[in-house]
Structures are given as C-alpha cells and as structure tokens.
Write a protein that binds this DNA or RNA. Structure first.
Lengths: 162, 162
DNA sequence: AGTGAAACTGTGAGGCT
DNA sequence: AGCCTCACAGTTTCACT
C-alpha cells in the first residue's frame, strides 16, 4: 500500500505555546530584547534565542519589518483599486503586476479569484495622485480591461496571528 | 490678516534623505543594528540613533513588527470579504468592526467609501474556516446586510514607502 | 543637528546536563 | 531540548561643538 499524502502540508511548522507567545511579543515589538522575552517566558536567554532563530529559519517569520503611518509622511489618501485584466492578456499578469507592485504608493497587492483579477492598496497624497496612478499605470496598459476605485477611510491591522 | 491653514497637514513630518534611507533599511530588516546603518549612511551611531528615535516619537514609525508567512502556520487559505452594513445600523459599525478585527484569522480591515462598507482580509486553514467565519461573525449579525467572499491566490507587499 | 567617548546592556557561541 | 558562562558587539547617554 503506497504511503498517502499527509493531512498536514509538509512545510507547515507546529508551534507550541512558547512559539506562539514569541510571535505575539515580536509582532507587537519586533525589537523586544531576547533577554526580556526570555525572562517573561521563564526560559533561558539562549533557549529563547534558539526558538526565534528556528522560527526564522523555518520561514514562519519572513522578516522583521516596520509599520509606517502613511498620514505622517503626507500620504493622507488611501484607496483600493480593483483591476480586471482582458481575458486575452491573462498571461501578462505576473509581469504587469510586478511592475505595478513596486510603484510609489503601492502598499500591497492581492491576486484574486472571481470577477476582479487583482486588488491594489494605494497610499498617496491626494485624489490627483490616485487619478494619475490609474491613468499612468492602469488605463494606459492594454492588458487592463477595467478598474474600480474605492476610497479607504480607515485601515486597521488584525489581531495576533496565533 | 488671519493666519491661514497651511498646505501641509500640521502632523506631517518632513523627511530628508537620511530619514528615507533609514525607513527603507528598517523596512527590509527592522533589526538592522544601529551601527551598521550609521556606517552605511556615513553618520555617527549616536546621530543615527537620534534619527530613528525621532522617527518613532513623531509617529512615522508606528511600531517594529513581523512579517509572518501564513502558509507556514497552517493558514493556507486567504480571502477578502466585502461587507455591507444595513443603512439603519451604520452607527454600530465601529463597535462591530472592533469585535471582528480581533478574531482569529483577521489580518486587516479596510473601511471603505462606496457600496461596500468594509473589507476584511482573512487568513485561515481552509474553506470550511471561511464559511464558519462568515456564519459566526457576519451573517449572524443583524447589522450585516450582505457579504461577498473572494479567494486570494497571492498576497504581495508593495515597494518601499519612501 | 551632529559628534566622540565611555558606561552599560544584550547577544550568541561553546560546552554541559 | 534546555541551560550557564563569558567574550564580544551594540546601544545609549552625555558633554561638547
């Protein structure tokens, strides 16, 4: 009898209670010192360090990054832009989206199933910037069938991952 | 003649070239050492530290946080859920959304202008979890007029902020 | 605002249980 | 897997410019 594929994906990491607490602590403050976390968890600093390194190496932690307030840097306007690609141009999507992704003001990109092909989260100065962005990077591209822009009044992070 | 409101919002911080480079460096790796950044920028470590502290105090940097790979912790399925609130229940939106925001699997929440009132980004294990989430937290709530779920095939970060 | 020096704190490797 | 020790690296304060 052949070995069957397991229920759990092979690259899924099992997290114990300590791992989860570490992820929560570092999610709140990625610069928390190893010592303070070890103390709070009641484990040795070296153990704590090994845990964090292991979370990095296993790819659970992709990177340590920043949460920047767009308003404070003059990007007071956020928008979600829903984009449909022409059916005949689907094969260009990954090239196209990569160009879009790195444009000034693009904070994230979702590839979607359903009627829209992707959603773009934009943080810019004002509505002129949105218009300009759509004109320059979307409408101008023959692969784009249509776009629909919704203003974002507020953008909040979710709860902890674990 | 009365002083008129300035073009630039009062809480907007002007960033010089050093600040922008720091934001880019820390965005890539929020744990970069102060020393290495100072060296790369050609400034003294103490100066560098003062800059980063000032970016924190001014609110440009909200927090140092983590980029967690949802797949590695068994959340292989992502979805965007578009929610409409009944016109008569708009006043309950902020209470309601705060309850939603902290639920397991909710990674972010957008408040929207236009036909949909908000969008929820969910990272869960499978489609059952999505169905359960919608049932438990959305459909069950009388304030919700309708929901529409789109699967997310891929989710990519944008380019640097500055 | 930026600097240099010095005191302090935290990190991470090695060997051990 | 977890823990202890310790040399080293990094941080942070402060007086000065």
């Amino acid at each position: 009898m052949p070995v069957t594929t397991n229920d759990v994906r092979p690259d899924t990491v099992q997290l114990d209670d300590i791992d989860k607490k570490l992820l929560r602590m570092l999610g709140e403050n990625a610069r928390r010192t190893n010592n303070s976390m070890a103390t709070e968890l009641g484990i040795a600093p070296s153990t704590c360090l090994a845990r964090v390194n292991s979370l990095r190496e296993s790819g659970v932690i992709r990177r340590f990054t920043l949460d920047v307030d767009p308003e404070r840097i003059g990007r007071s306007l956020q928008a979600l832009i829903f984009v449909r690609i022409r059916p005949g141009a689907r094969h260009t999507m990954s090239t196209f989206s990569e160009e879009i992704r790195v444009q000034q003001g693009v904070t994230q990109l979702f590839f979607l199933g359903g009627t829209d092909d992707f959603v773009l989260h934009l943080a810019v100065r004002d509505s002129n910037d949105v218009r300009q962005f759509v004109l320059d990077h979307l409408s101008a591209n023959p692969a784009v069938a249509s776009t629909q822009t919704s203003l974002v009044f507020d953008h909040l992070p979710g709860g902890p991952w674990v």
